[in-house]
Nucleic acid binder design. Structure first.
Lengths: 169, 169
DNA sequence: GTCAGTGCAAACTTTTTGCAACTAC
DNA sequence: GTAGTTGCAAAAAGTTTGCACTGAC
């Protein structure tokens, strides 16, 4: 583990650690007098297994394919709770796609989005992650911070140059 | 002008400079063989006058109140063009509202969003702005970069402490 | 005069809401 | 047993699409 930083307090070795996520969620539910239903537990487990970005539909399909039926309404409800519990964060990369991610997984990277083809890439930059995390903002308690870099990927750029004019999509 | 940085190439003194925006847009339209319609010109002018975030509905209302009728479809179409022309950027602070902003206005600040009340505040941080702008990303041409800091504002925090439990909204 | 662009309404997608049935406590 | 949750379907909200008409070139 040569990459582990000394000052990285709260270091979570595996960002998709289901047990750890579960216990945080259970704690949150207990604290707020909410019920620990099978649906809630199963949805969180499913999220941990996806290991990456997900949307409501993807989650619904995955759960169906695991023979666990749950309504979309419950998925929305559970994600809302998970966001309140600071376990999940929301991303919106383009108009019609809201995607979510485990906060512990999102904390280490930033997003590079191509305006042409919409591809989302993740980049790591320790310096900026640390700087942003330690940023003090007046009258505000930071919980999570997210950076999006928009531009044109090399593939689209190549296409642009060879068409001499920019492709609209 | 003591704050003007030497290496700030392309410094735009007034981010809402209608004439400048207009000429960039005209240039973009000409370059791409698109028509310079009254609607397009008026929508951009309206955006420059709003001076801050706006959404499609807000733009529609503002134009109506100026006795200029334009359909929502045309507003969407024009915003799309303005984004392609790198004049406007898109933000999504919460689920249901996509908001836009003039790129020149957005370039200088970042967004602080309260997860409780949804309030969006702007902060300036020269260091991070410059660092991000100069960041080199492999196989990618950066056009714009945007940072969102999520957390709890002091008002909501106060409320939380005095209710002992977190309010869901 | 031609065809890109607009207005309007319908279609589509995503998210929210209301209510009866269910189940964690 | 009670009240918080869920499922289902309908509603709402935001965005896109299709087509006839208009106006920029």
């Amino acid at each position: 583990m040569t990459t582990v930083k000394k000052h990285a307090e709260k270091t979570i070795t595996n960002p998709y650690d289901t047990d750890r996520m579960n216990s945080i969620f259970i704690e949150y539910l207990t604290e707020h007098g909410l019920r620990k239903t099978t649906e809630r537990k199963t949805i969180l487990e499913c999220i941990c297994n996806i290991q990456g970005h997900f949307d409501v539909d993807m989650l619904y399909e995955k759960l169906e394919s695991n023979n666990f039926h749950v309504s979309k309404a419950s998925i929305y409800n559970t994600i809302e709770l998970l966001m309140n519990a600071c376990l999940v964060v929301r991303h919106q990369f383009s108009t019609q796609t809201v995607r979510y991610e485990l906060k512990s997984a999102a904390a280490g990277h930033h997003h590079v989005i191509c305006n042409c083809c919409g591809t989302v890439r993740e980049i790591r930059n320790e310096r900026i992650t640390r700087y942003m995390r330690d940023l003090k903002i007046a009258k505000f308690t930071q919980e999570y911070c997210s950076m999006y870099i928009y531009g044109v990927c090399s593939k689209c750029r190549f296409r642009q140059i060879h068409n001499t004019k920019k492709t609209t999509d």
